[in-house]
Design a protein around this nucleic acid. Structure first.
Lengths: 234, 234
DNA sequence: AAAAATAACTGCTTCAAGTCAGTTTTTTCC
DNA sequence: GGAAAAAACTGACTTGAAGCAGTTATTTTT
């Protein structure tokens, strides 16, 4: 008997990348309102889009690029999630009681961000239930993915965490088994919660074991099945 | 110059316990709808309220007790958050695309849970924007607290993590500097992501250092300021 | 009230993973 | 295109924290 309905593992992939169309749920007037109260800004690679603790004045829509959402405190750095283009960022700061951004955002690659006035966004939430319902769903999906990352980083050791992130980059971010990393080894370290040196050692180990091929920034997954097993068993 | 407006640390307290009144935002008819489509169930200490992967048929309102929300997979156990009475549980499963519960819930103490039909809840979300907006805020606040826990568990070492959880239990759960723990040392281990033995050793160390007093299940925080410093510096 | 079971505690050992101090390779930029 | 800077990499060392194997203390059970 095939148990095909079984629940998938917690951390099959832990990074946010999907795109429910929220914009289409707005009326013509509401769309105009957003258009009038937003501007599109270009960011260069490595630039900071916003910092935790600043007043949240906008909701961000990533039109182009790759960014990280992270928490930092005295040189500790925790990446919560990555975002690719066509995703809404900063929804968490909608919370009325706390007008401060709950995380920082910075770019891995050149990016284009549409900044939408947060008051307008709030207004639309209050007046359009379907839109509001969709936003709840976006938040939920995101939260659930972050839980997966939380599990991965706290319950697995290096092998599993690195396998997780490689699968994730392949499946969600680059949608290909081979890709050019826009991230440094230190970035990968932040992403997997391990030291730069450990990333290097572990990547080499994976390469020696024939799991991946790798030369500097270019990576190719060779044995996805085995990587998934490593991810699963931690 | 006093920088009193500075943002508070990420993990000042990492467990969910607050209570925005969502019920009052419903109309008389809507309240009746909820009353008609919900039942209250008693759970004994240690019982499972629901399991990750099961179909999400209800939203839970904790009327009495203390429960943990957690992820488990092959004897790995990650506690996402604790809930005390008067809080809504299971909001994450509102996400329409995935009718499965994203986490498990079980009780630490005897508890009373009102189970609300999820379809009714969804209907109210769609028809009542203010209610919907309040629920978004609840979700956001919760998410933000879980980020704090995420940071604590991944970026701090044992001292900091234990200090975090002790402060949290004191501030949010028991609202007193001395309290009777309904959790075992093993539970504390799950909560802080450390082994039972390490919890014991660390607690003893805190006791020897005069940070806390402790005898079996009863704990008293003696030097909150120093605990906060330990929490902050990890 | 004694026996059984569970939880709390202790000391010793082991190991995963970080740190440090370099060398080599790749990228950047005048 | 060559010098300078930044990443990538390597090996040796250190350490935080888990695991193990046992003892003592608390509950629970009968």
């Amino acid at each position: 008997m095939n148990r095909t309905t079984e629940t998938k593992g917690i951390t099959q992939c832990s990074i946010f990348d999907f795109n429910l169309s929220w914009y289409e749920l707005l009326t013509k007037e509401e769309k105009m309102l957003i258009d009038e109260h937003s501007v599109s800004i270009n960011f260069k690679k490595g630039e900071t889009v916003c910092k935790r603790g600043a007043f949240a004045s906008h909701i961000y829509f990533l039109e182009e690029g790759l960014v990280k959402v992270y928490l930092e405190e005295r040189n500790k750095n925790l990446i919560l999630t990555l975002f690719t283009k066509n995703n809404l960022l900063g929804l968490s700061s909608l919370f009325e009681g706390n007008n401060k951004l709950p995380y920082s955002v910075s770019t891995y690659t050149d990016s284009k961000v549409r900044m939408i006035d947060i008051q307008i966004f709030r207004q639309l939430l209050q007046q359009n239930p379907e839109f509001s319902y969709r936003i709840i769903n976006l938040l939920n999906e995101k939260t659930s993915q972050i839980y997966g990352r939380f599990f991965s980083l706290t319950q697995k050791q290096l092998h599993g965490r690195l396998a997780d992130i490689l699968l994730c980059l392949s499946n969600r971010i680059f949608k290909s088994k081979s890709f050019e990393l826009p991230l440094s080894r230190a970035d990968l370290g932040d992403l997997t919660g391990m030291s730069t040196e450990s990333v290097i050692r572990m990547m080499k180990e994976f390469k020696d074991d024939g799991l991946i091929d790798m030369h500097c920034k270019s990576v190719e997954l060779l044995d996805v099945a085995r990587l998934e097993r490593i991810s699963e068993f931690g």
